[in-house]
């Protein structure tokens, strides 16, 4: 049952992450999102209105603290090994979710330039190193053509 809960949460996380404004970290957003959905989900409003967003954030923070408290209690009750399991599961979920993002290439080609950035940079560097610069231009500047005609 726990797992099903978590997977549900992770799904929600995904939705949140795609609309994350960047103000909060992923985890905060996910937690708050769960809460906001429970409370009736004024997601669109929060994105439209800046003030609303700020108030929402406050709410999120409060709920997040609450959650943390409840979790602490749970932990106290639970055996340590179980808690470890919980964390591991969480981590696993995150991994899964990352992969899903990679595979779900609905926006085909849009982010293609981001692929192998380091490799591309390395190649460009080597190309620049190997290409022979026009030393004459470097030394004498751009007036070179004019002077040659004279």
């Amino acid at each position: 049952e726990m797992r099903s809960q978590l997977s549900a949460r992770s799904l929600k996380k995904k939705t949140v992450l795609t609309t994350d404004s960047g103000n909060c970290t992923a985890e905060e957003a996910s937690e708050s999102e769960v809460e906001s959905l429970d409370e009736g989900g004024d997601e669109e409003q929060s994105h439209d209105d800046l003030e609303a967003e700020v108030s929402n954030q406050k709410q999120f923070q409060q709920t997040w603290i609450k959650k943390a408290d409840s979790r602490r209690q749970n932990k106290l009750e639970a055996v340590e090994a179980e808690a470890d399991d919980d964390i591991e599961n969480l981590l696993r979920e995150e991994e899964e979710y990352e992969e899903k993002i990679d595979f779900s290439a609905d926006t085909a080609g849009a982010l293609k330039w981001k692929e192998d950035l380091t490799q591309k940079a390395a190649q460009a560097f080597l190309r620049q190193q190997q290409s022979t610069p026009n030393l004459r231009k470097l030394v004498y500047g751009t007036v070179i053509e004019d002077n040659e005609h004279e």
Binding site: T132, P133, L135, R136, V139, Y140, I144, N147
Partner: peptide, 9 residues
């Protein structure tokens, strides 16, 4: 006076 400058590997 301007020199002709060529790189040689």
């Amino acid at each position: 006076i301007m020199f002709k400058i060529e790189t040689k590997s």
